[in-house]
């Protein structure tokens, strides 16, 4: 799996950035964050190490404030399935992954996508919490002065 890591990462970043209508240069803040986060996630996926939550949060924190639909935003996390399929179709028999390896990769991605949904929702809820807090802050001095 690790042999395919760099290729998956490169393709994934390209497809993730396509979510934005205008090309995002690799030096833009979004591309920099995506690139770092996807690297963390791909490492986790390839090593079967589930310690990718922080990287996942970095991605969904950006996605959760974009105007795209949640389904479209989260489809980013299913892209590696398609990337892997394309890669396997083009690769030699010797380099191809065993079906069970591919199956394992797919189930890890499914788990990741569900976790991404949790993380995405957490950020959406945070947005609404911030709206409420902002309303409360407007009353700050009134509340402060009302305190004994």
């Amino acid at each position: 799996m690790n042999a395919h890591k760099a290729k998956i990462l490169e393709q994934w970043l390209k497809r993730a950035l396509e979510l934005f209508p205008e090309k995002m240069d690799n030096t833009t803040p979004v591309a920099v964050v995506f690139s770092g986060a996807l690297e963390g996630i791909v490492s986790g996926l390839c090593n079967n190490d589930n310690d990718y939550r922080a990287a996942l949060d970095d991605m969904t924190r950006i996605l959760a404030v974009q105007s795209t639909l949640p389904s479209k935003a989260l489809s980013i996390f299913l892209e590696p399935k398609l990337i892997l399929r394309d890669m396997m179709m083009k690769t030699t028999v010797a380099d191809a992954l065993m079906p069970e390896e591919q199956e394992a990769f797919h189930s890890r991605l499914d788990a990741l996508t569900l976790e991404a949904f949790d993380s995405y929702m957490q950020h959406r809820e945070k947005i609404y919490q911030l709206k409420v807090e902002e309303g409360r802050r407007r009353m700050f001095m009134a509340l402060r002065r009302a305190e004994p």
């Binding site: 803040p29 979004v30 920099v32 964050v33 950006i62 404030v65 974009q66 105007s67 947005i127 911030l130 709206k131 902002e134 309303g135």
Partner: peptide
């Protein structure tokens, strides 16, 4: 404005980063 929160978060992202 608080109703503009998502857009503000998008616009403020480069600073926050």
């Amino acid at each position: 404005a608080e109703e503009n929160m998502e857009l503000r978060m998008r616009g403020g992202f480069p600073r926050a980063n």
